[in-house]
Computed example of a mutant assay.
Amino acid sequence: MTGNGPRPEAGTGEVADAVRGNWVDRLAPPVTRPYLRLSRADRPIGTWLLLLPCWWGLLLAMLSDGQARWLDLWIFAGCGIGAFLMRGAGCTWNDITDRHIDGSVARTASRPIPSGQVSVAGALAWLAAQALAAFCILLTFPAAAILLGVVALGPVAIYPFAKRFTWWPQIFLGIAFNWGALLAWTAHTGRLEWPAVVLYLAGIAWTLFYDTIYAQQDVEDDALIGVKSTARLFGVHTPAWLRRFLVASVALMSIAVILALRGGDPIAVLVALLGPWAFGLHLMWQLTRFEPESAQGLLRLFRSNRDSGLLPLPFFAVALLL
C-alpha cells in the first residue's frame, strides 16, 4: 500500500481518517465501536453533508410559500435523525461492496470489515437495522416525500460501484447525497417543484467540488488498483475544475433562491441571495488552500465543507422573517 494519510494506533481498532479522540473511541461501549465506525459515527462530516441539503430545501420551501408550520419542526429534526441513519446505512453498504478495495488503500485498510472487526454477515444485519429505523422516520412524512425517499435507495445502491465503471463517481455520490433537498422541499409543500430541482443540482455541483478534494488523498492507491475518480481524471487541472464546480454551485443555488421567491419582497430576495454568495466565498477560501500533496490539508478542507454548507441557512432564516 502507498499513501501518506494518517495512521491509527495499532490494536485500538481506530480508523485512519477519523478525528483523534472522537466520541466513539472515547465513550461508546467497546462492543458497539466497530459498528459505529462502520457507520462513520466517528466521522460526522458525512452526516452533515447529507443533512445540509435537506435543511436548504426545507428553508427554501418555507420561503417560497411564506409559511412556517409545526410540522416543519419535525421535518427539520426528522431529516437530522434520518441523515444520521441513512448515512450510516450507506457507508455500511459501501464498505461491504468495497471490502476488497479498502484493504489495498492505506487510508481505508483500518476500516472495520477489511481489518476484521466486523464480518460481512454482521455488517448486513447492521445495514438492515439502520435502514429500517430510517424508513420508520420517513413514514412520518407526507406521501410524496415518502415516495421520493424510497426512490433515493436506487442512487445509494449504485454509488459504490460507480468508481468501477466511470471516471465520474462523484456525480453518483452527488445524486445520492443531495436527494434531501428534493425530499425536504416536498415534505413541506406536498409536491416537487423547480426551485427544489435547481437547488438539488447546486448540491450535486458542490459534491463534485468537495469529493474531488477528498478523492485527491487516494490518487496514488487508486491508480495502482484501477479505481476511477475525478481527482485522477483531472490531474494537474484539478484546481480549474474545482473553480467550475464552485461557480456552478453558487449560480444554481442563486437561481433556486430567485425561483423560490419569485414575486416576493425584494429585500427578502436580496437577503436570501447572500446565503449562496457567502457559501461561494467559503469555497473560494478552500481553493486558496488546496494543496494536492498534503493529505492532512485535504482532509481538513473536505471537513470544512460543513461550515460552507451551514452558511446559507441563517440568511434563508432571516429572509423568512422579513
Score class of each variant (00 low, 15 high):
residue 132 L to V: 11
residue 165 F to V: 10
residue 138 L to Q: 00
residue 161 F to P: 00
residue 70 W to Q: 15
residue 144 A to N: 04
residue 163 K to C: 01
residue 85 L to G: 03
residue 98 D to L: 01
residue 127 L to I: 06
residue 147 L to A: 15
residue 98 D to R: 05
residue 142 P to Q: 07
residue 176 A to I: 00
residue 125 A to R: 14
residue 160 P to M: 05
residue 158 I to W: 09
residue 125 A to G: 10
residue 116 G to Y: 03
residue 158 I to Q: 07
residue 125 A to F: 13
residue 71 L to I: 07
residue 97 T to G: 14
residue 102 D to W: 10
residue 143 A to G: 03
residue 71 L to M: 11
residue 136 C to R: 12
residue 153 L to W: 11
residue 157 A to V: 03
residue 153 L to C: 14
residue 139 L to Y: 13
residue 86 M to T: 09
residue 124 L to G: 14
residue 152 A to D: 03
residue 141 F to P: 09
residue 162 A to C: 06
residue 90 G to V: 03
residue 163 K to D: 05
residue 173 L to W: 07
residue 137 I to W: 05
residue 147 L to R: 10
residue 73 L to G: 14
residue 112 P to A: 12
residue 78 G to H: 05
residue 86 M to P: 00
residue 117 Q to R: 06
residue 114 P to I: 02
residue 161 F to S: 08
residue 172 F to A: 06
residue 97 T to W: 14
residue 175 I to R: 06
residue 80 G to K: 04
residue 134 A to M: 08
residue 128 A to S: 13
residue 120 V to G: 14
residue 123 A to P: 00
residue 71 L to P: 03
residue 93 W to M: 01
residue 76 F to C: 07
residue 90 G to P: 01
residue 83 A to Q: 04
residue 137 I to V: 15
residue 99 R to V: 12
residue 102 D to S: 05
residue 120 V to Y: 13
residue 153 L to K: 02
residue 144 A to H: 09
residue 103 G to E: 06
residue 168 W to Q: 14
residue 72 D to P: 08
residue 168 W to L: 12
